[in-house]
Nucleic acid binder design. Structure first.
Lengths: 225, 225
DNA sequence: CGAGTTATTAATCGGTCGATTAATATATCT
DNA sequence: AGATATATTAATCGACCGATTAATAACTCG
């Protein structure tokens, strides 16, 4: 087969730096990457698709982010920034006022509900084997949140607010389970239970969860006796 | 380049049906698929690798399972078979004896612990967006388990064993969260809390979880008064 | 105005993936 | 024994993936 001649195709743009000085391609790539991920799932979206949807080419991803992982890394950095802020607040109130476990649970559930793309990202990039953001997530977030949570529980138990036989580590895991799993499992529970995590039903979920955790974990008079 | 001559390679087996009548290749494929998946994660293992490790070729996967998804489907079918039996038992005891919620929780956690590859499969193929076993999982299992669980909770509440204000649907979600999330999040919690889900620690987890759920959900005298 | 830098496209590379096909050897049936 | 069904290997296909490179155009600075 001879090297085909210029091959008359659609009059697409030719190479070269564009005229407008804006250069918002980097931001557009991040934005459409988020959108495509939320709609189609992480594994199904390649750099070509992201680039095309963002109105550019895959080479731009390498130009701005080095490689595909660099793009994901940039996404996560933007994503967990508010979480880390929240965490810093928790860490700061070290030995001071009672961090009110119920308020803590409620705050994290509210945060998950208001970032609907976050549970899917956690499933795909943290919980899933080979998720490429696991390292970062553990280092920047989970590795700090979990010990802080255990410390809070330990302090509360020492003050007699929690059952004496309660293992703070196990209680922390239960709290995280009750907070997070309803969101990551929502695609399933919506279908098998008609369960929604929005609007009024969300409020009922929060009240139910905080109540269940409190009753399950707090000391009561007969215990203390 | 000329079509190279027979290319002297190692004296590997030639095509053709083998002599031994055993034909356990199907089982070997399922077994090594489980092992490889457990060790290296789902996304990183292709059919070639599975087949080679099982001592055969990738074409056998298509021969026995049709396609890659068929292999996963077979894995899941084997895995949840005991669950479905369990479920049938649960569905059958409709209006009769109390199904003992704590025993139920304990049984499901034990099942997850004894199939250590199952949580990762659930994450990858059910919870993850685009997971290809989600339909099957919902239809064969979750779609029946969840309503059955809700029915049990409803009945118990009607009998006054649970708090009057308890929403059975939300309580079912909490129960599932407490049962499942400690397992699917174990790759993280092992790192940030040193939490293991095996041996003695598993027993403590089960006791802790059943106790927390019971206290959080059961009616107590002061409530009934 | 000209040289160098920056941003962008198009083309392509090498690799891997799941899937298919042709050839071949054994088993089974008649 | 001969025909047909079954099980297996080797080779290959086409698609897609991430990454790289060369060409090109605009911008910047002297």
């Amino acid at each position: 087969m001879p090297t085909r001649p210029p091959s008359p195709r659609r009059p697409s743009r030719r190479p070269g730096r564009p005229s407008g000085g804006d250069a918002e391609i980097r931001a557009a790539l991040l934005q459409t990457a988020r959108e495509l991920f939320l709609r189609h799932g992480f594994g199904k979206v390649g750099i070509r698709r992201i680039a095309t949807a963002a109105g550019t080419t895959s080479a731009m991803i390498h130009y701005y982010f080095g490689d595909k992982l660099g793009l994901y890394r940039a996404m996560l950095d933007e994503a967990i920034a508010p979480l880390v802020d929240n965490l810093r607040r928790l860490e700061s109130m070290r030995a001071t006022a009672a961090p009110d476990l119920e308020a803590l649970v409620s705050a994290y559930m509210r945060m998950l509900a208001s970032n609907p793309w976050l549970p899917a990202l956690i499933v795909h990039e943290v919980l899933d084997e080979g998720g490429q953001l696991r390292e970062q997530f553990v280092e920047h977030f989970a590795g700090r949140l979990a010990p802080a949570l255990v410390a809070v529980l330990e302090r509360e138990r020492a003050r007699g607010l929690l059952r004496r036989d309660l293992d703070p580590r196990l209680a922390a895991i239960s709290a995280l389970s009750l907070c997070i799993f309803p969101f990551v499992s929502q695609p399933i529970t919506r279908r098998v239970l008609g369960f929604s995590v929005e609007g009024e039903e969300f409020d009922r979920l929060v009240r139910h969860t905080t109540r269940l955790f409190r009753e399950g974990v707090f000391a009561r008079t007969e215990d203390a006796a």
